[in-house]
Design a protein around this nucleic acid. Structure first.
Lengths: 217, 217
DNA sequence: TAGATTGTTAATCGATTAACAATC
DNA sequence: TAGATTGTTAATCGATTAACAATC
């Protein structure tokens, strides 16, 4: 489903490319490169300069003719487009192995997401502190979400429990769900991203079997 | 990059859709549904029947006019196309939090991948047993891979170590890499799938900010 | 000013959808 | 046989690429 941005329809594929631009720009910034052209970016990222300029122009021009793009400015703009400057409050549902890993995943914070806490229904886990984050009882979810203005929930719970949990979270005011359990999640009330890494392993198997795709995606 | 299948070019988007078909078919099988039409599947999956038939026909027809598709047959065929019947031997590099979670992730085995062991360079972790899998020293990688005919490596190591490790693994005969570290991995020798879940969180933030995409992807 | 590089329109390419003849 | 539904070709739609005028 394509999304509006200032009235323009932005194709989904374009939005999916933004994090990759963001990552490269962040890397340039670190390296002290503060000015680039679409041609340079094209070479580094292995996409056409035309596509890059076309992509940026869905959101308005960020460059200057004859000069190119200021890296820091472009980086900040793309961050703002993605909403990384909103500091979205985020919780993790499920304090199992994956929940642990996600709680220890520092990149989320680096990208501006504020991880506040975990939730679980296992009495053994409740009260545990993981990477500085407390594990609360799921029955405190409603209160906690409303109290702390939580916007995003990361779901790392068993398949069977996911759909109902998603409904509840929508009810409690959550606006976005990042679902790691291997089930198809859909909702009309909440934005959803499914992360199915078994799918990635399967397409990898295809590539191996066909001895193809060796210049990756 | 599009891939060949019996001489036909199969678009990348089609291959990425196969795991999703596979998942739905597996579900039908469990529910005892053993015959479906593209129309039925279309309804369940929220894609057009036309696209479904088109997709399947890249790999040859699996249905019968007037009848539809036999679920079990179709399920097995798609599994075979993806290479799930190959029983690819798989290892996990990195026994940190994410490595732990991946070692405990049962879906890989369910999809036919054989997880054999983990590897790490931290003396404290070497020798540890996680979900029945031993953590070995990375300096045993070459020997282990050749000895056990390992085809796939799942990378769950720090960003900085990833590129070099990928080169080494290619050298040792690994054919596919599933990369979880937040770096862009490319290779001409090995098939690669990058799993960047921070990217998913970023596109989720976009959706929330734009109050869009509520009928998900 | 001359050179570089964008923003944007136009052309091309590929993927999706529609249509329908084949056939179970 | 009549009805259903595929396999496949043709039409449409959308995304990518090319081109170039605008302009820094």
């Amino acid at each position: 489903m394509d999304m509006n941005y200032n009235g323009k329809k932005v194709p989904d594929v374009v939005i999916k490319r933004l994090p990759r631009y963001y990552r490269y720009l962040g890397e340039f910034l670190k390296q002290g490169i503060n000015r680039i052209s679409s041609g340079y970016l094209s070479e580094k990222m292995n996409v056409t300069a035309s596509q890059i300029r076309q992509d940026f122009n869905y959101f308005g021009g960020f460059g200057q003719q004859g000069y190119g793009y200021n890296v820091e400015y472009l980086y900040k703009e793309i961050g703002a487009i993605l909403g990384l400057d909103e500091g979205y409050k985020t919780i993790i549902i499920g304090a199992g192995h994956l929940g642990h890993a996600l709680a220890n995943h520092t990149t989320f914070e680096k990208r501006g997401f504020k991880i506040l806490a975990l939730f679980d229904n296992d009495p053994d886990k409740i009260g545990e502190v993981i990477n500085g984050l407390t594990v609360y009882n799921v029955n405190e979810l409603e209160h906690y979400i409303k109290e702390n203005d939580v916007k995003i929930a990361i779901l790392a719970i068993p398949k069977g429990a996911t759909a109902e949990m998603a409904d509840d979270l929508a009810e409690y005011g959550i606006e976005g769900l990042c679902n790691f359990s291997y089930v198809e999640l859909e909702s009309k009330k909440v934005a959803i991203e499914n992360v199915h890494f078994t799918d990635s392993l399967m397409t990898l198997a295809y590539k191996i079997k066909r001895k193809a795709g060796l210049d990756n995606e």
